[in-house]
Design a protein around this nucleic acid. Sequence first.
DNA 1: CAATTCGGGGGG
DNA 2: CCCACCCCCCGAATTG
Length: 558
Amino acid sequence: MEAARWAVAVAADGSARYCPLTREGTAAEAPRSAADPAAALRAAPPGTRWVWRSTAEVAGALAAGVDVARCYDVEAAEAVLLGHEGAFGEPRGLPAALARLRGLPVPPDPPAPAAGDAQPSLFEDSARPVLPGGTDPLTALLEVYGAQLRRTAATEHPGRLTLLLAAESAGALVAAEMDAAGLPWRADVHLALLDELLGPAPPGGLEPRRLTELAGEVSAAFGFRVRPDLPAQVLAAFRGAGFPVRSTRSWELRQVDHPAVAPLLEYKRLYRVHTAHGRNWLRSWVHEGRFRARYVPGGAASGRWTTNGGGALQIPRVVRRAVRADPGWRLVVADAAQLEPRVLAAVSGDPALAEVAAQEGDLYAALSLRLFSGDRERAKLAVLGAVYGQTSGEGLRHLAGLRGRYPVAVRYVDEAAEAGERGRLVRTHLGRTCPPAEAGDDGLGGEVPEGGEPPSRRGAAARARGRFTRNFVVQGSAAEWALLMLAALRRSLAGTPAELVFFQHDEVIVHCPAEQAAQVAAAVRAAGEAAGRLAFGASPVRFPFTVAVVECYADAKA
DNA sequence: CAATTCGGGGGG
DNA sequence: CCCACCCCCCGAATTG
């Protein structure tokens, strides 16, 4: 059952040494040499789990199309293990890990690439930190890996943590492959969209015509010149007109009855497209028909991914029109349905909530029939209130109803919140650990509200911490499910033309020939259920997807 | 002058 | 309408 493991390490000159491993992580045979990592990766039997320092180190081989079934990313694992051990902030790099084992001074990690930087060159010797004492890279790798196996085995739930490390590694692999593939992006469609929304491109980077027109309408409505992109001016203008708004946020302006509001809201909408996804963005990020994001697996504390530049996880709906499948191909856009409440049902073990989540249908709708007389929105707000730690408003009453009917689930997040407030460690289902509160988060700094001594600044900070840890256990466990889902999907698409091209927390896009789309949709659904079984064992909770097979991303959502 | 903060938008 | 959680990114204003 357990896949054979091999290790590979890359030397400073770009050559590789590799060997099969024993169960304990030591070399089972004398290491061999290869001219480059790709040659080494081709030497092991199919299905091998490759142990390597970091997936970035072999990104070139992966981009060249070498088939790797599984991996174990030692530096990704080190970060998770350090967190589990309460050693947040320690460098995760192999040199640092080795130095810690040997009791030597710990070198810092190399700085992360800045957003605008090009992809770091693969064999940039100067960028690779030197191992302590000139240790051979494979020796160092095996020493750290063996120690990681023992550290994992010594934890309270070694099986779960092993699964998390495997999931992190799979995520690194998927991220590297998606970075290389890119999201199909039609620059011509994008430019036409910009023309349509903003007017034809003015020469020399001037303000688009439509924005100038709307700014003129705003000024005309006030009777004097107001620049819509300067909140202070807009605020003053509305106050002068007798509308005591607190900010110029869209939701607040929408309640104001004044002729400037409509053009102003339209200005904001288009200004956003212009600055964040306009021609500059297109020039910077789309090349040869693909938008290449640089995913950062585990970039958020909860384990969710972030991206390094390009804003790949914030593509506005209107811009999704430019995301098109190649001719004859389709985009399979799959969205995990009501993921967070399903995860809450699974991790908390609440039998009543699990019974609801054991259905594939809309969970909020089902919940609303049991508790909120069919009002789906109220049911959804109640669940979100529980998961986010709502403190005020109408939702609190709904939350009380939820607590009465699903006490185990609500107690689960309440306990996570209480642990956070008391400064205790909080972990996800598989064992990702919540980073500690920042020093200075204790409420001693910052301004004191007027009107004497506040009720409790420290208490406010503790409650904020509680909301964070409350959400962490759900969002973090959901991120783990998503990683396992990605890993399963990747394996089932291997060897087919289909390519994973996008991942956003609970949503994946697969680009594939039209005739493969139905099979891909089935593979996504199967991956979701497999991830649920792996992560949560015997739980009856289902993890269905909403799947759309489309030529254009914008057509995926109703 | 560059770096940081603020206000506002986007995604889940 | 917001709220409560996790993020990214922009331009302007402010600060060092």
